[in-house]
Design a protein around this nucleic acid. Structure first.
Lengths: 194, 194
DNA sequence: GACAAAGGGGAGCAGCTGTTCCGGTGTGGG
DNA sequence: CCCACACCGGAACAGCTGCTCCCCTTTGTC
């Protein structure tokens, strides 16, 4: 993906590929998939032909960046989650951070939503995230901190739902208020209707 | 909106207008704003010129239908909300019904989300809904059934967030699970962190 | 029943999108 | 230093969109 061993590429080809990835990362993370490929080529200082020789399609380019973004997110989440005093606190901080991550990268935001329901191949990315969520949910249940019956899919769905508010550019405090509501709904309160 | 007193329209004009509204309502409520105007004209058995003489733009056509949809929704919600034993039950049933309404009408779903944050003119429609939500929230607060600090805007934001799951065609039971989580988060549980 | 004028139809325009094609250019091995 | 070939740029294509234009038809009045 980063280099080809059998056929060493030319220097300009490699630097162009890097420029494309840099420009695409900036554009997609700021405005999502809707960005015009022409703009990416222009920002990278490159022609359309160059872009399309390095990546067979716009989707392939997005997917490459998406894989990196998810990997970065999951790694960071694993790190900041490890040293929490309780499993509940870990889950809480994961969900909170997920929102700031979605705000920072609109492509991830859109993909996370799509992957929540679509069984399509996009889930290649989600498969990096899901195991982590399953761990966090299981640990929180072991602690009896989570409302009985809550599953990993519910947490992912909640992430997609709250992501909608981020996508709509809702003010940060409005998103935070909804986050509090959802978090308190996830917390085990015991004495509620079935 | 339905008739012009000063200038009595021709019979064919009126029936065409009705056919356009009928076809547009069916298409937009099923698939949202993304529907091609050509398809609406075709389904109405009408040409493009006809469509655009009756409505200055696609947006105007959507807005006309949206106003009707919101009015119908609010009226129905007011009716089914009136005879509830508690204010909490009323709010709960309103939010639940809101989801089935958004599932039935994708144009409303999309507009509700947009209106939640945009201060744009689209809010003409939301202005029908907001007073009702404010009433329900105030009544629930008077009953001490709502988590302290929850405002009408929070409920509207929650509606938009859950609507996202409907938009993604999430299975009905997945949406219902998130609904339960959110509802229990809205309910006053007293002993939670600030 | 005739004749303005309101109304209708749909091809065509302008603008956007992702993608392809091909003549020219720069690289780097010999 | 030279030349083949990987590589580059961007004009052009195909397909979609909302919308307009203009010639023809229908309506209802006198």
């Amino acid at each position: 993906m980063t280099q080809q061993l059998g056929t060493p590429r030319r220097r300009d080809a490699l630097s162009n590929r890097a420029a494309i990835l840099r420009a695409a990362a900036a554009a997609f993370s700021e405005r999502g998939r809707a960005v015009d490929v022409r703009e990416i080529a222009r920002c990278a200082g490159v022609g359309m032909g160059t872009l399309y020789r390095h990546f067979p399609s716009k989707d392939a380019l997005i997917e490459t960046l998406l894989a990196e973004s998810y990997a970065r997110w999951v790694e960071q989440a694993r790190r900041s989650t490890r040293d929490r005093t309780s499993a509940w606190e870990a889950l809480e901080s994961f969900i909170t951070d997920a929102l700031t991550f979605q705000r920072r990268d609109r492509a991830v935001l859109e993909n996370l939503a799509a992957a929540t329901t679509d069984a399509a191949g996009l889930s290649v990315c989600r498969r990096l995230l899901r195991p982590l969520v399953e761990e966090l949910v299981a640990a929180a249940h072991a602690e009896r901190a989570l409302r009985p019956g809550v599953r990993a899919d519910d947490v992912l769905a909640v992430l997609a739902a709250l992501g909608r508010l981020v996508e709509l550019d809702a003010p940060a405090d409005a998103v935070h208020r909804c986050l509090r509501i959802v978090l308190s709904g996830l917390r085990n309160g015991d004495g509620l209707e079935p």
